[in-house]
Design a protein around this nucleic acid. Sequence first.
DNA 1: ACTTGACTTAGAGTGCGCTCGAACCCGTAG
DNA 2: CTACGGGTTCGAGCGCACTCTAAGTCAAGT
Lengths: 142, 142
Amino acid sequence: MKIGELARRSGLSVHTIRYYERIGLLPYADRDRSHQRDYDAAILVWIEFLGRLKTTGMPIREMLLYAALREKGPVTGAERRSLLEKHREHVRARIAELGACLLVLDTKIAGYADAEKRTLDYDAEHFRGNDKPPRARQARAR
Amino acid sequence: MKIGELARRSGLSVHTIRYYERIGLLPYADRDRSHQRDYDAAILVWIEFLGRLKTTGMPIREMLLYAALREKGPVTGAERRSLLEKHREHVRARIAELGACLLVLDTKIAGYADAEKRTLDYDAEHFRGNDKPPRARQARAR
DNA sequence: ACTTGACTTAGAGTGCGCTCGAACCCGTAG
DNA sequence: CTACGGGTTCGAGCGCACTCTAAGTCAAGT
């Protein structure tokens, strides 16, 4: 598989694939006789996993660490595992954090909804039949 | 409250506070007669909310939009609400995404744990009493 | 033979969100 | 009087993760 096809199939851009190879996130790809990269489909699995790490907010620095361990072969299994376990905790913490913010957001939105409703009720009460409230109805609070 | 104290109490750096004011995320602060910013404690609530938006991944660009609406007063309530509602969906989606990745991570980690266990079992089976397996036990698969 | 299009490299540029440096000003304590 | 611990502005610099440009190579199609 050439780089263009890999790009299409992985969702990364050609530029990004080369960039990842340059920094060591992707292993140095074999070249054909005209120096073009020739990929094995197996790389897709690795790229997909990198994507997960990225999605979950792992910085490239750390992915490089993981990639380097992977390159060293199965003896590094324990180390890789512990790295992933640490990362998993970050992800869990992040999810919890987002959940908490979501509640705040809900409250805030409910507040706006409330204010809106109160305004409508007020208008209904005082300007029934008028489709335009008079200009004095511009409020002062923030 | 001067900028230093606000920094301590908000968790932002003095630099960041000035930066936020510069770009319009914080309202232009009143200055005392020697041109020093003098803050009302109310600003802390706003900063905290900005922090939530930031935590949940809202880009500054969008926060600026929200901040601008806020500056315009309560007439912009509906717009602000819809902006937050849109953002809330992003946050929900993000949480779901992270949850999915978490499962993948769990699986991967379980895989490493498994491999480790199999190695130990194998060693226990074949090298009982030896605390060091011989050198030929270096595997070949990735 | 020539065009096309996909590839190569090295290195420069981009957008984001800060972060810092230089040079200066001000009010208070010793 | 002077030193200090704040503050001020403006603009440059940084770390991250790409993203793109320039100049060139190569293989296949017409």
